[in-house]
Design a protein around this nucleic acid. Structure first.
Length: 891
RNA sequence: AGGCGUGUAGCUCAGGGGGAGAGCACUACCCUGACACGGUAGUGGUCAAGAGUUCAAAUCUCUUCACGCCUACCA
């Protein structure tokens, strides 16, 4: 009789997860020590926004990193997973600003100093949210080293890098056309602009010329005409040769501007005449530079029209458009309007329409840095996984433009530059200067802050203590792997490469693992407006971290989308339950054995498994261990999960545990002799399985581990493949026994044998060895096939009258036919099977008669086809015989 | 406009030159002493279309179609 349950019936993850996590953390198991031995394995977390909440992207990213970190920690590497958060300039400032506005406080009224203090307060209150949420996922981050991009040390790193790059002429200040977000009221970089295709209009407007026909230009933004300082045509355009050296009148302004000739202008677009607004269009800016045109600001930093717009001054640029067109029409200068589809830039933060405008900003000269970074990928010092991203990466790196790094915000790293209001001098220094070096007057610090991504770019070394020379920096840089979504290759990954190579003179990481983006069950991007956002915290509450992590990892292949379906998570939560119950089974038997002293497993039983099922599962475990290691090393998280799932469920539970039951429960002498060895083997195989599964399902495996082995699983050795356990013979034999079992089950099902009824299958086996095997190991199978005995067919024995047949490639199995079988239905089913067999036979025969096939196909392929043909034909014979029998039954 | 990617069972996807696979869903039966969050047996597909290479193509090549995504200075 089994003892009382050693474990509750299900895994209570809501109780167990926090308990296990705080134990790990309190025992310092996440903590890395530079002086510990072992090859370093280092990952820096992509720092989440300090005021953010856990979303699906984090959940996936962190799960994959934790799998790698736990695997390497168990392997014995000196493992560091750096924790930290990002100050997230615009995002955080906007959040705090909104919260203050709700209390009726305006940022500008508050003033810079007080506002920044409010943000710090905010960070203090909400900054640990995200870390708490990451803990719930089981992330084994080294919290003792947690960093924040605005920490003192990291701020020092930012300043040091800025000054160094400035000194090397890799940072400059200049008046350029930049992307301006009128709503955030700051400059943003090129990649922070999202282009969206819009159904827009192309407006044709007359620019009057003295003594000549009016020039008609086409524009999508008529409101910018107040900033026009020229009209451009192509020098090869025959229509406009007469305008050389002439001027035209900008509508509504009374201003004469020159007609310039430039091959940039596309003769075929619109009218071939282009209005030039250097202050508000990147191309026009370039044209303006090369033709030395003045620049007139028509749109202000808040998106309203400037005084240059005359009567329209002070109005929003988009809202005024209609009235401007009306005014043009009244003057007879509007020609026509055509629909036009074109891309319009939007701020990636606030979605408002970006206005290009000329402004004084700081820039990083990206060309030389990008070249070095691209080189590191070209020569393999950094590899991208999957490698298909390389082309996109090079495309961007080879055409990179300078990076506008100044932001007109208050929250962030203030630029270490000082201006002299009296003489205009600008200096960049590590320390605030006492006075202007030119005129000795007082200096003012540049009010701008740096792009958030500037400090993120330093993350792999700033978090390790740079610019100080620390043990961590020496031990852990370069880091090993960077895991992130492909959406921030340009924002972050490329810039870390540039900065790392520049400042550390070495790559920041050796491999970049780019994972998919999480979408909803229908492949739609999750967004608040669509209402399809799934909150990871709810998933964690409902299904637990292990099932959630397994779901994410099992879908993290080299694709771009990861469709998250609650049904799948539910499915894997059942897998957690399966593991839990396999443990209950194992423990019940192990505990029972322990109470009976004579059954205590002998140590030597561990070395050499005795029974066939034990030999088999040990051999299969070698394969699993090798596969798991291989897939983890190659970042094939999906295949790793698949291997674990298939083995655990279909080999370990469905077959191994069932096959050893006769040994564990049996009272025969043979069973007793094997029992101790089987129990020892069960313990060994199951603990290995727990260890192999731990990286992806840390909680349930750790919880169960203490019942099977000493110490924390988290720090246990990752199983190595015991190749000496490889046992092809046992795999072949068990394969045979499985075939017999399945055939009998199928026959039972086909002939509707009631579940309770025992059958007495007669098995005919061609091979003497297999016959002996069946005699010896047959008892293990009886329960699985619902038989009371298993009889070998005598030589030449055929199906007795009144029995039906099924067939296997190796022989035949008969089971008694029950009277309630519906002959018509069975005949129909067999007829279908027969048709398929005949088709297969025809195909195989055709192959074997094909001279080309015989000559060119590999010998083993041909041999295989021959065997198949024999098999098919044998089965066909049996089916015919059965059909004949049904014929006689019908009479 | 270029680049990348994807089209395989009702759904989500794996596979990747020699008999079309998994999970979920569905059908039938079963509470057998780990698990009904379970078990057994099934149903279900011109592997997007066309052409080519090959003894052999879902798989390789080309073309087409559909759907995604990214990059871009067409006003």
């Amino acid at each position: 009789m089994p003892l009382s349950d050693p474990l509750p019936k299900n895994f209570d993850f809501l109780t167990a997860e926090p308990k296990l996590y705080s134990h790990w953390e309190q025992q310092g198991m996440f903590r890395a020590e530079p002086d510990r031995p072992g090859p370093p394995f280092v990952i820096v977390i992509p720092p989440p926004n300090v005021t953010g909440n856990l979303h699906m992207g984090h959940a996936l990213d962190v799960t994959l990193q934790d799998i790698l970190i736990r695997y390497h920690r168990m392997k014995g590497d000196n493992t560091l997973w750096m924790a930290g958060t990002d100050h997230a300039g615009i995002a955080t400032q906007a959040v705090v600003e909104r919260s203050l506005a709700a209390q009726g406080i305006q940022r500008r009224e508050l003033g810079r100093e007080k506002f920044v203090a409010k943000v710090w307060e905010w960070k203090k209150t909400y900054g640990s949210n995200i870390s708490r949420q990451l803990r719930r996922l089981g992330a084994s981050l080294d919290w003792s080293r947690e960093r924040f991009t605005m920490d003192e040390g990291l701020s020092e790193a930012v300043q040091e890098v800025f000054v160094t790059l400035y000194e090397q002429n890799l940072i400059y200040r200049g008046e350029r056309i930049i992307n301006w977000c009128p709503s955030c009221r700051t400059a943003v970089s090129d990649i922070e602009v999202e282009h969206e295709t819009h159904q827009d209009h192309l407006y044709y407007i007359k620019y009057l010329a003295r003594d000549l026909e009016p020039l008609i230009v086409a524009t999508t933004r008529p409101e910018t005409l107040f900033g026009d300082t020229a009209v451009a045509v192509n020098p090869d355009d025959p229509r406009y040769q007469g305008y050389l050296g002439k001027t035209v009148l900008v509508p509504l302004t009374g201003r004469q501007v020159p007609v310039i000739f430039d091959s940039y202008v596309d003769i075929t677009f619109g009218t071939g005449a282009l209005k030039v607004t250097p202050a508000h269009d990147p191309n026009d800016f370039t044209l303006g530079r090369s033709h030395k045109l003045p620049s007139i600001l028509a749109i202000s930093e808040t998106g309203i029209l400037t005084d240059a717009a005359g009567p329209f001054a002070g109005r929003d640029r988009l809202e005024a458009r209609g009235d401007i067109l009306e005014a043009l029409e009244r003057e007879g200068l509007w020609v026509k309007t055509e629909p036009l589809e074109h891309a319009v830039g939007h701020c990636y933060r606030c979605r408002s329409r970006i206005e290009p405008l000329v402004s004084m900003q700081w820039f990083v000269k990206a060309g030389p840095l990008a070249e070095t970074a691209a080189q590191a990928v070209r020569d393999g010092r950094i590899t991208l996984v999957p490698a298909s991203w390389e082309k996109t990466f090079f495309e961007w790196m080879d055409n990179i433009r300078d990076w506008c790094v100044s932001r007109q915000l208050w929250w962030g790293h203030q630029i270490p530059a000082w201006h002299c209001p009296s003489c205009g001098a600008v200096i960049v220094e590590r320390q605030a200067p006492q006075a202007c070096p030119n005129c000795l007057g007082p200096m003012e610090r540049d009010p701008d802050v740096l792009d958030t991504w500037f400090s993120s770019a330093l993350w792999p070394f700033s978090t390790l203590g740079w610019p100080k020379d620390t043990p961590e920096l020496r031990r852990y840089y370069p880091t090993s792997v960077l895991v992130t979504g492909f959406d921030i290759i340009f924002f972050w990954v490329a810039r870390m490469m540039m900065m790392g190579l520049k400042l550390m003179d070495d790559v920041p990481f050796r491999q970049v693992v780019l994972h998919p983006l999480v979408r909803d069950a229908h492949g739609q991007k999750m967004s608040k407006s669509k209402g399809n956002v799934v909150d990871p915290l709810e998933i964690l509450d409902q299904y637990g971290a292990d099932a959630f992590r397994f779901t994410l990892a099992s879908q993290a292949g080299p694709t771009r989308d990861l469709r998250l379906d609650a049904k799948r998570i539910e499915g894997y939560s059942k897998f957690v339950n399966k593991i839990w119950n396999a443990a209950r089974f194992a423990l019940t038997n192990l505990n029972e054995a322990q109470t009976a002293a004579e059954d205590t497993p002998a140590p030597e039983a561990l070395v050499m498994p005795q029974s066939l099922p034990d030999r088999w599962i040990r051999s299969r475990l070698v394969g699993l261990t090798a596969k798991v290691t291989e897939e983890l090393e190659a970042f094939n998280f999906d295949r790793y999960c698949d291997a674990i799932y298939q083995f655990t469920w279909y080999e370990f539970c469905d077959w191994y545990l069932e096959l050893i039951k006769p040994i564990l429960y049996g009272s025969t002498e043979a069973a007793s002799a094997l029992k101790a060895g089987t129990l020892a083997n069960l313990r060994l195989v199951f603990s290995d399985l727990l260890a192999l599964t731990h990286p992806v399902m840390p909680f349930v495996t750790e919880e169960l581990w203490s019942n099977f082995a000493e110490g924390p699983l988290m720090l246990a050795a990752f199983p190595a493949a015991r190749t000496e356990d490889l046992d092809p013979e046992s795999e072949k034999l068990i394969g045979f026994l499985m075939d017999v079992t399945k055939a009998v089950r199928q026959a039972r099902s086909d002939f509707r044998v009631p579940p309770g009824a025992k059958v007495s299958p007669i098995v005919s086996v061609g091979d003497q060895a297999l016959a002996e095997l069946l005699t010896k190991e047959g008892p293990l199978l009886l329960k699985l096939m619902g038989a009371d005995c298993l009889r070998l067919a005598a030589a030449g024995e055929t199906a007795p009258k009144g029995t039906a047949s099924n067939v296997l490639s190796w022989g035949e199995v008969w089971t008694p036919v029950l009277s309630h079988v519906d002959p018509l239905a069975e005949a129909a089913r067999l007829g279908k099977e027969k048709a398929k067999l005949e088709k297969d036979i025809g195909a195989a025969k055709a192959k074997l008669q094909n001279p080309g096939y015989l000559a060119k196909a590999p010998a083993e392929v041909v041999e295989e086809t021959r065997e198949k043909l024999e098999d098919f034909e044998a089965r066909l014979t049996l089916i015919d015989r059965t059909l004949g029998m049904f014929g006689s039954l019908g009479e």
